[in-house]
Structures are given as structure tokens and as C-alpha cells.
Write a protein that binds this DNA or RNA. Sequence first.
DNA 1: CTCTCTGCGTTCTAAAATGGAACTTACCGT
DNA 2: ACGGTAAGTTCCATTTTAGAACGCAGAGAG
Lengths: 162, 162
Amino acid sequence: MKWQELGEKNCPVARSLSILGDRWTLLIIRNAFLRTCRFEDFQKQLGITRHLLSDRLNRLVEKNVFKKVLYQEAPKRYEYKLTEAGLALYPVMLVLTKWGNTWMNEDGSHPPLEYVHKPCGHKTSPELCCSECGEEIHVRDMMPLLDRLQDNAESPLTGISS
Amino acid sequence: MKWQELGEKNCPVARSLSILGDRWTLLIIRNAFLRTCRFEDFQKQLGITRHLLSDRLNRLVEKNVFKKVLYQEAPKRYEYKLTEAGLALYPVMLVLTKWGNTWMNEDGSHPPLEYVHKPCGHKTSPELCCSECGEEIHVRDMMPLLDRLQDNAESPLTGISS
DNA sequence: CTCTCTGCGTTCTAAAATGGAACTTACCGT
DNA sequence: ACGGTAAGTTCCATTTTAGAACGCAGAGAG
């Protein structure tokens, strides 16, 4: 499969990964949530090569995850800001944070990154909940709606665990 | 930065991405949630080269996302099953599904992948909620606990959007 | 006016990862 | 003996990436 084809798939996971699925993109977005927004800063913080950074930022602008905002005329300089689509990736960050805290810390050598939920004031662990009943979502409780074509490579994510 | 260094970072997002952050890994895991568990099936469904598939499966076994389960003696054949750590990636799948449905479908050409939450019987949209108060989580409501070292490349994810 | 600095890339070459196809091994059924 | 199945391995051409140097357009200092 050519990589570019992913963006055309009917599976939304495949489409998401056509943008996010590489070694640097999600790290760049992580740092954007940390308020980094300039080329030099991304480069220094991540240690990514300038070439790749330029490439990824352009792609993310093209895909509407970042927007360029002029902050200086002559020479023109832009900040890379998260768009609405980019900000909507915050759950991805939190979910990866939680997974990394729990499962990428076998020897306990890394202190977990924890958050306080300001409105209620408690240390919180984000959970995926049903928008209708509010209950926490478990793998086997989810049933995909299958009014779609189903060839092997594009079948939707089922809710049934192995 | 060497890629391998990512796994040693204090940032849990970086550690998660040290396993998940490449072109194929999350697609392989997606298909595992679709109940695929054999080499040949992954290969056919994804169109990934056998070389890479072998590589990625071994890495995921090593990192405790998959476990090998013998299903045939002589010759020994194994199925690749999600471990507890692997099953814990389900929220990642759902969050990527939701993002792809919403933001990777500009022209509306892809039908959204929707789910029914069986316990309540409604079509649902998974939301990240606070484990303590149950309210939906928004970027600006989250405050990281900063009792950790904070060098540039490893500062934790703040809750403050740009 | 020259000199250096900042910010953001681009260019270059070498090293690494990937794609695609053929090959291997060990068994099974007929 | 022969074809089929399952899970890789091997080989080579093509792409990507890393790392460092270079380019360029101003800004500010002397």
C-alpha cells in the first residue's frame, strides 16, 4: 500500500494516521500544546532536523491542523498556531499521556504526569465516557453501526476485544 | 535526537510515541481490535510488507502490547493477541476515530463511523471526562502538577491552549 | 557602511528505513 | 509426489531521515 492512499480510506483511524502517523508529527503537536509556536523553538526543543520540521509544519498547515499567523513584517515571520482541528487533538494527547503513565513505566522510574481538573479541583484521570449516559466506555460495550461497505482493509473498528 | 532516546524521556507522550509513533504500528493495533491475530491476515489486510510486519510484531511483543499464543504445534504457529496494555489502547482508537470522522472528512465523502453504546442503547460519541466530577474535559481546565524537572524538551503537557 | 545576530528555511551527502518480489522451511492433505 | 498453508527471510531498488553547512532578509551596534 502506498502511504498516501491512507488519506482516502473510509476508516477514520486510517485517515487520522495519514497525518498523525509518523515519528515526529504528534511530538510537534505536543509541543504546540505546550505553547511552542515558532520554527526555532520547535527545532531546539525537539532536536528534529530543520528539513523535516519544515516539511511537517507545511504539511500540518496544508491539512488544517496549524495555521500560520504573521507576527512580523519584513522579513515576514509566522507563528504556527493550532487551528480548531488542531485543538481537537487534545484528547489524543491526554489519552497518550495516560497510557504512557501506566504502561510505559514498568520499572517505576518515571514520575507520572498528573493533572488537576480546575473546575472541580481534584487530581483527575481522564476517562472516555458515553455522551448519552455518561458511563465509562469499555471495549466490549461498543457496537459499530455497519451500514457501510466492508472490505478487509477498511472494515470499521469493532467494539469486541480479542 | 536519536529515535530510541524517546523511550527514556520523562514525558509519557514521548514514551508512548516511542512505540506507537510510526506509520504502521497503530494500524496493526487497529486491526488487532478488529480481531485479526495472524501474520498472514495482518499482511493481507494492511498491504504492509512482510519484512516490516515481522519487525513491528516482534517489537510490539517485546514491548508487551501483544503476546504470542501458540495455536499449533509442528510447525509452531502463534497468534498475536493484545495484552492488557494493548487493550488499554482502545481509547486511542476511539479518539482517533472521532477526530478522523470530524476533521478528516472535509468534503463529506466519507460516512462517519458511529457506535452504539450497548448498556444505554444510544448512538454515542466518546468524550473525555474527569474521573472525579464526570464533567467533560476542556483544554483550559487542565492544570499539570509540576513537581518534576522541567527542561525544554521534556516539559509536561500543559493544559493551556495557544 | 560593515559586522554580527536572529529567524527560517534550503541544500548536500551519508545513513537508515521501506517497498516489492522471490525464496525458505516445515508440515498437511490427496 | 505435488500443491497448499503459515510465517517468516533475503535481496535490492527507492525513499526518508540525520546532521551539518549554507543562504537570505532584515535589525541593531559600532
